[in-house]
Design a protein around this nucleic acid. Structure first.
Lengths: 117, 117
DNA sequence: TTAGTATATTCGATTATTCGAAATTACTAA
DNA sequence: TTAGTAATTTCGAATAATCGAATATACTAA
């Protein structure tokens, strides 16, 4: 198999798919919100719900996505489930992004108008 | 309007939507590939097509997404269109991500198996 | 056991993304 | 003009993402 495409290219493509997957997980406002909430440490689902005002079922679904793609981990303690970020490096990505956003804020805002208009 | 939700929260939510939008744009392997191609400078669509083996129409659609969300810019020169990254900061995001990926490569690979299996 | 709280899963409808094929626009060179 | 290359747009079908409602599981306390 793979007589024409070199192994290297196949692996690079696989890596790109993986990257795309991670970005896609971050590609939803509610999931971004959840990740931001977890910035300073672990939280229970209830605590997350206090900040991220969505249906519990919906939050669970988003947490499930974050979990399945390895961005967050969870631990159970009695009645509750605590979530936390898998790797603080993710915060760095978000912080670099924050720089990007700050820089492009003005155009970002006018762009937002267009997005939902 | 917005009698109950403070302005600040509304703006934060707007910003999150914008961030999500950018991440979503990066949430496709072909678009990641295109951005990576543009890492070292501008390229014509043809040159991009040489590296990213997809239908021209498909590449155009992805470039259109990258353009409309402001991640790339283009200029026309005669018969051809040159694309380049809007802001090198984007590369930094990608580079931070690269660290993340390197760190999680092993699990990443087993995760990829699950994704397409 | 029963009732109550915390979280997760399943289901079905809606909306969004994605792709290739076909048609289109914009240039260039003969 | 005509033919040819570069890039884009439109269309329609297939697939994926999203949400709330309803249901289910797991734990706790009475």
């Amino acid at each position: 198999m793979n007589r024409e495409i070199p192994d290297d290219a196949v692996q690079k493509e696989a890596l790109r798919r993986f990257k795309a997957n991670v970005f896609q997980v971050l590609g939803h406002p509610t999931r971004i919100h959840i990740v931001e909430c977890l910035r300073d440490g672990e939280l229970t689902v209830s605590a997350i719900l206090d900040q991220v005002a969505v249906e519990p079922a919906n939050a669970s679904q988003h947490l499930s996505v974050l979990r399945s793609k390895g961005l967050v981990v969870n631990r159970k303690e009695g009645n509750q489930v605590f979530y936390s970020l898998r790797d603080p490096l993710l915060i760095e990505v978000l912080d670099t992004m924050k720089l990007y956003f700050k820089k492009h804020l003005e155009e970002a805002m006018s762009m937002l108008q267009g997005m939902e208009g």
